[in-house]
Simulated assay, not measured.
Amino acid sequence: MVKISEFQVKDIVNIHDGKKLGNMSDLSINVTTGNIEAIIVSGGGRVMGLFGREEEMIIPWNKIKKIGADVILVEHQTAMKGAYSDK
């Protein structure tokens, strides 16, 4: 069994580019089924926690590829835009 607090200290990393996306700030749970639908990741959109709004990303549960001791590896498409081009 894993506690939510254990997930919140893990870095969320995109497997496509190795970029740290942030840390888990919340979960989206389907109350009918009890299944986790997505994790909500808080990004580093603020300067020293003071200025601007902190950006949030919603990562669907099926995009989580591996949960390790220190890191959660995810497949996040937004970070890939423009990163790879076949043309």
Score class of each variant (00 low, 15 high):
M1P: 14
A69Y: 12
F7K: 04
G43S: 12
S5H: 10
L27N: 00
G44H: 12
K20R: 11
G44Q: 11
K66V: 05
K66Q: 09
F51H: 09
V74N: 03
R46M: 14
I59T: 01
H76C: 12
R53D: 10
S5N: 12
I15Q: 12
F7S: 01
I67P: 02
I39W: 00
I12D: 02
I15W: 09
I29G: 00
V47P: 06
D26L: 01
V74E: 02
V47G: 09
E54Q: 14
I72R: 03
L21I: 03
P60F: 01
N14I: 01
F7H: 04
E37T: 01
N35Q: 15
D17W: 06
L21T: 02
I58R: 14
S25Y: 06
V31W: 15
G18D: 10
N30T: 00
G52R: 03
I72T: 05
S5P: 05
S85N: 09
N62K: 13
I40L: 10
G44L: 08
G22A: 04
K19L: 11
L50Q: 14
T32L: 10
E75Y: 14
E6A: 06
L73T: 13
N30L: 00
M80W: 06
E37S: 05
K20Y: 06
K20V: 12
G43V: 04
E6I: 00
V13F: 03
S42D: 14
L21M: 09
K66T: 05
I12C: 06
L73N: 15
I59K: 02
S5C: 12
N14R: 07
P60I: 00
A83V: 06
L21F: 06
D17L: 08
G18W: 06
G44I: 07
I67K: 03
F51K: 08
N30I: 00
K66N: 09
I12A: 03
N35V: 11
M1A: 15
H16P: 01
M80Q: 09
I12M: 05
H16Y: 13
G22H: 02
V41L: 05
S5R: 14
H76E: 15
T33W: 10
S85V: 08
E54T: 11
Q8E: 10
G43C: 08
E75C: 13
K3G: 10
